[in-house]
């Protein structure tokens, strides 16, 4: 991670979150209602600013997300969403503790309209967090969740602004009104960019499905070619949000890693997608020639950003897709650096890209260690999981200068990272991809 640029964007984030507090400090102080009251107000304002910046975090601004990898930004968006809910909830709790009579304001029938707006805003925010954290528990499909998430998030911010406007505390003077109007306009501008401008840009750069190939292990490789434009330039290992068949305005996109080399002719790109949900199970029935839209590339999981004398890849399940992109690119470039791949799968007959990996071994200095959870009787290779012993047995003596790329289920990634650290591989040389974004 380029530390200088990362520090700059963290400072920008904190500046945006804390800006309302600083600006309000510079203005006239409203009549004193006590220390707890002011802490409560400050938490409410900062919480609202955090809510606004949440829209910026997922707006996929390349320059701001590149130093971290956009997967990390989405994870931060998720966790800081929980934190901001606690900050916002502290606002009414402190007001009520300070003055229990204010509890009556929460009654939506008897209380003033601006207090009801505040209560509904908080309920919308609670709904956003619950639906996101427990989406799979509730069996909520990805696409309806995204629409619900967007509507509730906009409602939470809009109603919070109505609440501030109505309460008139730190919002009465013309310049304070200006601050909150500028904030509201900024949120509207980001939402317009995400929901209107970017989909419109994607609409102007369509792709066509030119190939669908069934792979081992309930996976499909989908090949796309740009329709009337030159396509996109990506780094091996990156990913994109893919819309198939529908319109980019309909929020039906899903994130997938490229599995192809960026050196393919005619701007061709390929995604390898495992059947895991409603959308992925329908991939096989997509007709050739169908329209597709590709929002990308994103992500920092790429050998191109980490020059090294050799690389180690650790893949589990469909985590092999971005690794294939990197291996194919290295092969297309005629790279002869030593490469080592650990690839864990449940069964040999279902292992995605088994044959493609064997073919790459003739073009690369590539050693492959297959690790099978349920090996056939005749299997002589590694069995079970990728353990510390398996890594230690196969990692080369000169492991220190190599960079390691780990991609698989989150639990596997965490275990591998711990094991690599235990084996003396510096964490700065271990790179992983978080692909369970929701």
């Amino acid at each position: 991670m380029p530390l200088g640029r990362a520090a700059f964007w963290i400072a920008v984030y904190l500046g945006l979150v804390l800006a309302p507090l600083v600006v309000l400090l510079l203005g006239p102080t409203p009549p004193g209602l006590g220390f707890r009251w002011d802490v409560s107000m400050a938490l409410g304002f900062a919480g609202l600013a955090m809510m606004g910046v949440q829209f910026v975090l997922t707006a996929r601004f390349r320059r701001a997300t590149a130093p971290f990898g956009i997967d990390l930004i989405y994870y931060f968006h998720r966790y800081v969403g929980i934190v901001l809910l606690l900050v916002v909830m502290a606002h009414p709790v402190l007001v009520i503790v300070d003055n229990p009579a204010t509890l009556g304001f929460l009654n939506p029938v008897a209380g003033p309209w601006h207090m009801s707006a505040g209560v509904i805003s908080l309920l919308a925010l609670i709904g956003v967090v619950i639906a996101s954290v427990w989406r799979r528990t509730f069996g909520l499909a990805y696409e309806p969740w995204r629409v619900t998430h967007a509507i509730l998030a906009v409602a939470a911010v809009g109603l919070a602004l109505v609440h501030i406007e109505g309460v008139q505390y730190y919002a009465a003077s013309p310049w304070q009104r200006l601050l909150w109007r500028a904030f509201a306009l900024s949120v509207v501008a980001v939402v317009c960019y995400v929901r209107v401008i970017r989909p419109w840009q994607l609409l102007r750069r369509p792709y066509r499905v030119t190939g669908i190939v069934r792979e081992r292990g309930d996976a499909w490789t989908l090949t796309l070619e740009p329709d009337g434009h030159r396509g996109l330039s990506f780094l091996p290992g990156q990913f994109a949000w893919l819309t198939l068949g529908g319109s980019p305005f309909l929020m039906q996109e899903h994130p997938f890693s490229f599995s192809s080399s960026p050196l393919q002719p005619r701007g061709r790109v390929a995604f390898t997608i495992k059947e895991l949900g409603d959308f992925t199970r329908a991939i096989g029935s997509v007709p050739r020639g169908a329209a597709a839209f590709v929002d990308g590339p994103y992500g920092a999981f790429t050998t191109d950003r980490h020059p090294a004398p050799g690389y180690v890849f650790v893949a589990g399940g469909i985590g092999i897709a971005p690794v294939m992109s990197m291996l194919r690119t290295l092969a297309d470039r005629g790279d002869r650096r030593p490469l080592l791949l650990f690839y864990a799968y449940r069964r040999w007959d279902r292992m995605t890209f088994r044959e493609a990996i064997a073919a790459l071994q003739s073009r690369l200095d590539l050693t492959v260690v297959f690790v099978l959870e349920e090996p056939p009787e005749s299997w002589n290779g590694e069995r079970g999981w990728i353990t510390r012993e398996v890594l230690d047995r196969h990692l080369p003596e000169d492991r220190l200068p190599r960079h390691v790329f780990v991609c698989g289920p989150e639990a596997m990634t965490q275990v591998i990272e711990r094991q690599l650290r235990g084996l003396g591989v510096p964490l700065s040389q271990v790179h992983s991809e978080l692909f369970e974004l929701v």
Binding site: L21, D38, L43, V83, L86, V430
Partner: peptide, 30 residues
Amino acid sequence: MRCALAQVVAVATGGLVVLLAVLFALVQRG
């Protein structure tokens, strides 16, 4: 590691916001 990093930075952000909210109130009330 990246997942833990996201969690730590999110919690640290929350801590900083609470700290500055307290500072805000202290400055406002002299």
